[in-house]
Simulated assay, not measured.
Amino acid sequence: MHRKPTIRDIAREAGVSDTAVSLSFQHNSRVSAVTRERILAIARRLNYFPNRSARNLRRGSSHTIGFVVIEITNPFYARMIRSAERIAHGLGYEILFAESRWEAQKEVRIVSNMIENRVAGILMCFCENTAESLNLIRQSLLPLIAVDTCPPRYKGSYVTNALASAGGMAAEHLLEAGCRHPVFFNASSAMSGFSSFQLLLKGFRKGLRSKGLELRNSAVINADWTIEGGSAGFARLLASGQPFDGIFCVNDLCALGVIDAAEQTGRRAGKDFAIMGIDNLEIGSISRISLTSIDQPYDRIIELATQSLIESIQNNRPCAVHKRLKPTLIVRESSKLG
């Protein structure tokens, strides 16, 4: 066969209707198992692939969920994508994911493309640089759940981290470790206004204040949430002359950069100063690093969000989930003093 095979070709060879062939490619098909397997075997032999886009256009929707993250290369976003794919697949859905990389117009294009491709709903990590994406989703009437964080003044469904609680937890731990000059390593200047980082800083300040310590602006270092950013931020901290004996970093990657830069100046984390991060990356648990971190329940976040979204789609009713999940402190050697 020199042309692309069609449903009709498979139906003719299998001795069934076109409808039976179409149904055989659907999850939980009502076609008998024996007939379905015969149809799929013929389709594989003929190298037939169903045109899902055309089917979605006819239906006006699909069994595909859009998932927009900020950076696929970031370990916790990659982790959430894997979990979302596993959960969705078990419920008969596929995940179409994309990254915005903090770019407002890219986020808008991604959302527009997902709507045009008839996704059934969207899981969204907003870059918070534009309101246009949210407006497009609202106009499309697609079910939406914000994950990880919510944009300011967002009123829709969400499953997120309790980031202010994480900041307070870090403050309490560093004070208990004996720190009297704590410093916060924030995101870069361009990203520090993002709600996640603002909530962390707010919680950290509040936790210190509750114990009688004020975090001065000079003790907030704009670094980045990368290893390189942490290293550069530590150099700026030393150059500023700001006293420090404890550092809370905006994530674990930043903390790893600080530890590396500190060692190059003869300072050791867990001896000369305490340091902790957030995300509890696997690399932080190895004995050479032993990084104290705050573990955020990303697997549970995406599990709740994905299940809630699919339930909303299947029952044709609005999403109604509003949850902030509390973090867990993982204490290791890096947050000790002396």
Rank of each mutant, 00 (worst) to 15 (best):
G15N: 11
G15S: 12
V16H: 07
V16L: 12
S17W: 11
S17K: 10
T19V: 14
A20P: 02
L23H: 04
S24L: 04
S24A: 15
S24W: 05
S24Y: 06
S24G: 12
F25Q: 04
F25G: 01
F25S: 01
H27I: 10
H27Q: 10
N28P: 00
R30E: 06
V31N: 01
S32I: 13
S32D: 15
A33S: 15
T35F: 02
R36Q: 14
E37K: 13
I39Q: 00
A41D: 15
A41K: 15
A41T: 14
A41V: 11
I42M: 07
I42R: 00
A43V: 10
A43N: 01
A43Q: 03
R44P: 08
R44H: 14
R44W: 07
R44N: 13
R45H: 14
R45P: 03
R45F: 07
L46Y: 10
N47M: 10
Y48N: 11
Y48E: 09
Y48L: 14
F49D: 13
P50W: 06
N51T: 13
N51F: 14
R52V: 09
R52H: 12
R52A: 08
R52P: 03
R52K: 15
S53F: 09
S53A: 14
R55P: 00
L57R: 10
R58I: 12
R58N: 12
R58C: 10
R58A: 13
R59K: 15
G60S: 12
S61V: 02
S61T: 15
S62A: 10
H63Q: 11
H63I: 04
T64G: 03
I65Y: 00
I65W: 00
I65K: 00
G66H: 06
F67I: 06
F67C: 05
V68K: 00
V69S: 00
V69L: 08
I70Q: 05
P75W: 06
P75I: 07
F76S: 01
F76L: 07
Y77N: 07
A78R: 06
R79M: 12
R82D: 15
S83G: 09
A84H: 04
A84I: 12
A84D: 03
R86L: 13
I87N: 01
A88D: 04
G90L: 05
G90F: 08
G90H: 06
L91N: 09
L91S: 11
L91W: 04
G92D: 08
E94Y: 08
E94V: 05
E94W: 01
I95P: 00
L96Y: 07
A98V: 03
A98L: 07
A98N: 04
E99H: 10
S100T: 10
S100Q: 01
R101S: 11
W102D: 12
W102L: 06
W102R: 02
Q105P: 02
E107Q: 14
E107I: 12
R109M: 08
R109V: 02
